[in-house]
Each structure stands twice: as structure tokens, then as C-alpha cells.
């Protein structure tokens, strides 16, 4: 089983990103679950989502304690949330950042998701949309296929810039 913990802020699309990621894994023929952890729901508050991907049906409903991958949509969240908690020694980090970031010696993927969203003017109510670019980055890391990401996004969003954003993030991320 591959376990992912996704950190975001309310309104950034983290919960939708988790669902899309599970959907892409499902389209790849895997079993997948996505669970949002709700506290008081409000814009800007830290939000955590959990994604599990496996070849067998998943029977676990509790939270992910030892993730294989931590995704950070908003780096400023690290001031208040211990995003590295429980990350496996060989665990990896995918962070939305234009610059390389050091994260305790772990393998870090830097993806400028905000930059991708802004470059396509993919902005709603002043907030850049980060979930669809994130899906492209996750595909590049190799957790889901690019084709399944495309299908999951086109099945959810009408605006074609979402699929473009995923493709752009895929191409920009250097491994």
C-alpha cells in the first residue's frame, strides 16, 4: 500500500486534489481511497487529506501515520503544522515551491504549482487553482499515469486550462 498525506489550506482545493488523485489511481486499475480530515471548515485553515493506493481493497479508515509521500500545497503551513510527522525514512516530499527546499534529507520534488496556475490565469476568487497542476506533478513522480490524470480532470472540470495546467506541471517538474 502506498500512503500519501496532503497538506493544504481551506479553499486551495486540497480535498478535491485528493479525490482526483484517488480517481486517477482507480482509472489505472488500482484500489484507492481519499479521506479529508475536517476540522472547523473555513478558508485559510490548515486541512489534511489522506490518499491510499493499493492492489487490494483498502479496509483502513483511520488516518495515515507513516506516509510514503507528503504533499505540501502551501509551504507557509509549515510554520504551524509539523508536515514531516511520521514520514518514513525513505519517504518523499512534493512541495509547491519555485525554489529547491531542503526537507530533513528526504527526497524532495519541487513543483511550482502556483506559477503554473498563474501562467494559465487559472485563478478563482483571487486564488490560484493548485489541484489540477498537482495531479500533473504526481503523474511525473510516477504514482499515477498521465492518461488517467487527463481522464480524471476532464471528467471533473469543463475548463480546459485544468488539463493544460496538469500537463505543464508534468513537463516542468524535473526528477
Amino acid at each position: 500500500m502506498y500512503e500519501i498525506r496532503l497538506h493544504s489550506r481551506g479553499g486551495q482545493g486540497g480535498v478535491t486534489a485528493a479525490k482526483l488523485l484517488a480517481q486517477a489511481a482507480f482509472l489505472d486499475g488500482k484500489y484507492a481511497t481519499a479521506t479529508p480530515l475536517y476540522g472547523a471548515e473555513r478558508r485559510g485553515a490548515p486541512v489534511v487529506s489522506f490518499i491510499r493506493i493499493d492492489d487490494e481493497p483498502i479496509r483502513i479508515y483511520s488516518q495515515i501515520r507513516k506516509p510514503d509521500l507528503v504533499i505540501i500545497l502551501d509551504p507557509s503551513i509549515m510554520h504551524t503544522v509539523d508536515v514531516m510527522q511520521g514520514l518514513k525514512p525513505e519517504g518523499k516530499v512534493l512541495i509547491n515551491s519555485p525554489r529547491p527546499v531542503e526537507m530533513g534529507g528526504h527526497r524532495v520534488y519541487n513543483a511550482d504549482l502556483t506559477g503554473v496556475a498563474l501562467s494559465l490565469d487559472l485563478v478563482i476568487a483571487g486564488n490560484p487553482i493548485l489541484n489540477t497542476p498537482l495531479l500533473g506533478a504526481v503523474a511525473k513522480v510516477g504514482l499515477v499515469s498521465r492518461e488517467s490524470v487527463r481522464k480524471a480532470i476532464s471528467g471533473t472540470f469543463k475548463d480546459e486550462r485544468n488539463a493544460q495546467a496538469a500537463l505543464k506541471a508534468y513537463e516542468e517538474l524535473s526528477l
Binding site: A18, A22, Y31, A32, T33, A34, T35, P36, Y61
Partner: peptide, 12 residues
Amino acid sequence: LDGFLLTHITQS
């Protein structure tokens, strides 16, 4: 169905 645990989880 368990609130959030099942109402809000995404599964196939």
C-alpha cells in the same frame, strides 16, 4: 453510515 469516515471517503 458513519459520518465523514464513510460519507466523505472516496472509494470505487
